[in-house]
Each structure stands twice: as structure tokens, then as C-alpha cells.
């Protein structure tokens, strides 16, 4: 028997009404996430990758129980969060924290670092005293590689990378078990991005954190994650251990994403799949497989039923009826170049 996952979502859906319906006629809804069932095992990092509008941030918010789901549920450590009252949810909130893309807009410009970091502890049962909060804040600053002397400074005095570290320190104040990171390195320069990714890796190891790491960047997701889930139009289309997903994608959308991501590795010829058009509207998604309108391998049957996420290998699931395809791995370009270079 495997242990209870830290997070389990069961058929989780989040629909947002955008137009009121007339009596007898339903209004339009955006199906931001539409039936997502995944597990985030303890002490593992699950990377969620998708393009804008895929629903990945909505999924993150739903997992954090920030918005009540339209249907389905989120279980945290075996407890169904949707059944809990606000008060009953509070102890769970302390165990789950989040970090955002733009650290500047998520830090209060009028609060010193010490106040910002102390905030999550102020409303704790009993409430931590001022000096206790300050000590803990100093400890967390050092944990994220910033000097204690920053406690009395304000957000505008810091660079983007430093602000992101402060955002991470704030998330760690309550010693959470689970951390949700939404596009946390997207706004950073590459050299700073590397520092922050290394920091996440170290914290995850040292504090035995379970993480949901949301990003649009495939190379980043491949670097930080144990398991990668690919989202398209509010649905998971493929999920697998990182190596398996990158070396043997089984969904055409994953293949297209991997081939579209530019790589600085020099290496001769590259086969690139260029998808046509944009992601369809989640108000009126295509029938059957949501990806079929852009899929180079679509056949008539793809329009019929919505493909289920089915096992295609060990811990590897894909939602595609074309199980006959031999898709190109992320490393395929290199292999191809090597083959072309060899004489036989």
C-alpha cells in the first residue's frame, strides 16, 4: 500500500459564468478546469505545465482551497477540504502556502520585511509575540540566503530576485508541508532564475516539502519536477515521471510543446512541429479531444468522445486515442543530429 498523497484532486472542476442565461436557457460558462484528478505524493514536486489559458493557475487556486470548486474535491492529507468550514480550514491553511510570479505586487510596499514575514504568524491560535515573530523572520531570511539586516527594509529597496526570496521566506514562516509555486521564476533574469531554482531545490530537500510547481517553461519544469503534468484547455492530457515524459511523450500536445521550446544546445537539423492557430476558447471547447483542432495526428474518431487519461506505462497516463503513434522525445533533435553526422 502506498501512503496517502499530500494532495489528491478528484474530478476537480471550476467553471466561471460569464453571461447570465435567460430563463430556460443556460448562460455561457468558462470551463477553466474540467475534471482534473491527480495525486501529489509526499515530498515530491509535481510540475504543472501549460500555455496561457490552460487553467493551470485556476487549478493552483483550487488546490489551495481559495475558490470553492464547481464540482469534485481536493483532499489534503486525506481530508476533503471542500467539506470544511472557514474556521475548520484555518489549521490546514497554515500547512499549505504559496508563492507568486510577481513578488512586488504580492508584497505590501508599506510593510517592512519583518512585518511582512510576521503576518502569517499573527493570526495563529494564541498569536505569536512580536519578538518571536521577528526571530522566526530572521531565521527564514537566512534560510533563503538573505542577511538578517534586511528585516527593517522595504520592498522597493530590493531587486526582483531578492523580492522573490522574501516571498518564499514568507511562505515558509508557518513551516508548511505543501507549497504551491505559480510562475515563480518567469519574471526573473536567467542568472537570478538559476539562483531561485537552486533555492527551491534545497528548501524542498531540507524541509521535506511537497510542491506543486506551475510554469509555462518546459525546461524549468523538467529541472525541478519529479512528476510532470501537462494541461490543455482545463484538462490534464498527460502525466508521467519527468524522465519518462521528456524521453517518451505519449500525447501529441506534449510532443508539440517539447519540439517548440527553443534549446540553446547547438546541433544541426531539428524537426520542429509548428502547431497552427491558438488554443480554442474554453467557453466553447471542441467536441471529443480538446486538442484535435490543432493536432497533426487527428482522425475522425477524435471528435467523438473525450479521451480518458489512461495508463500507457508505469505511472504514465495519457489522454489520446492514437496510442499507435511514435512521438518525438525532447532529446530527439540531438539524436537526429548525431545520426545525420555519423557516416553509417
Amino acid at each position: 500500500m502506498s501512503e496517502t498523497p499530500m494532495i489528491r484532486t478528484v474530478d476537480l472542476a471550476q467553471h466561471f459564468p460569464i453571461r447570465k442565461g435567460l430563463p430556460g436557457r443556460p448562460g455561457a460558462v468558462v470551463r477553466a478546469i474540467d475534471g482534473v484528478s491527480i495525486d501529489i505524493p509526499r515530498r515530491q514536486v509535481v510540475g504543472l505545465v501549460g500555455e496561457s489559458g490552460s487553467g493551470k493557475s485556476t487549478f493552483g487556486r483550487a488546490v489551495m482551497a481559495l475558490d470553492p470548486p464547481t464540482s469534485g474535491r481536493v483532499e489534503f492529507d486525506g481530508t476533503d477540504l471542500s467539506q470544511l468550514s472557514r474556521a475548520a480550514l484555518a489549521p490546514y491553511r497554515r500547512r499549505m502556502q504559496m508563492v507568486f510570479q510577481d513578488p512586488f505586487s504580492s508584497l505590501n510596499p508599506r510593510m517592512s520585511v519583518a512585518e511582512t514575514l510576521g503576518m502569517p504568524l499573527r493570526f495563529r491560535e494564541g498569536g505569536a509575540g512580536r519578538s518571536e515573530r521577528r526571530d522566526r523572520a530572521a531565521e527564514m531570511l537566512e534560510m533563503v540566503g538573505l542577511p538578517r539586516s534586511y528585516l527593517d527594509r522595504f520592498p522597493h529597496e530590493f531587486s526582483g530576485g531578492q523580492r522573490q526570496r522574501i516571498g518564499i521566506a514568507r511562505a515558509l514562516m508557518t513551516s508548511p508541508d505543501f507549497l504551491m509555486a505559480d510562475e515563480v521564476v518567469s519574471a526573473l533574469d536567467v542568472s537570478v532564475q538559476a539562483q531561485v531554482l537552486n533555492l527551491f531545490a534545497r528548501l524542498q530537500r531540507e524541509m521535506e516539502l511537497t510542491m506543486l510547481f506551475i510554469t509555462h517553461d518546459l525546461a524549468v519544469v523538467g529541472h525541478v519536477s519529479d512528476i510532470v503534468a501537462v494541461m490543455y484547455l482545463g484538462r490534464i492530457v498527460e502525466i508521467a515521471p519527468t524522465r519518462a515524459l521528456f524521453s517518451g511523450p505519449r500525447h501529441p500536445y506534449t510532443e508539440a510543446l517539447l519540439s517548440a521550446a527553443p534549446s540553446p544546445v547547438p546541433g544541426g537539423a531539428r524537426k520542429r512541429i509548428i502547431l497552427e492557430g491558438d488554443v480554442p476558447s474554453p467557453v466553447n471547447p471542441p467536441s471529443g479531444c480538446p486538442f484535435r483542432t490543432r493536432c497533426p495526428y487527428a482522425i475522425a474518431a477524435c471528435a467523438e468522445d473525450r479521451p480518458a487519461l489512461a495508463a500507457v506505462g508505469p505511472d504514465h497516463r495519457s489522454a489520446c486515442i492514437r496510442t499507435d503513434l511514435d512521438l518525438m522525445p525532447a532529446t530527439g533533435r540531438r539524436t537526429e543530429a548525431a545520426l545525420e553526422g555519423s557516416p553509417g
Partner: peptide, 16 residues
């Protein structure tokens, strides 16, 4: 300092 697609999932080595 840039993570590479080519090495994804080969263990979380430190980025330079």
C-alpha cells in the same frame, strides 16, 4: 544557468 530540456528528469543537479 539555463536548465536544458535535454537533461530534464536526470536528477535535480544544481544549476550554475
Amino acid at each position: 544557468s539555463v536548465p536544458l530540456l535535454e537533461t530534464a528528469g536526470t536528477g535535480r543537479s544544481e544549476l550554475a
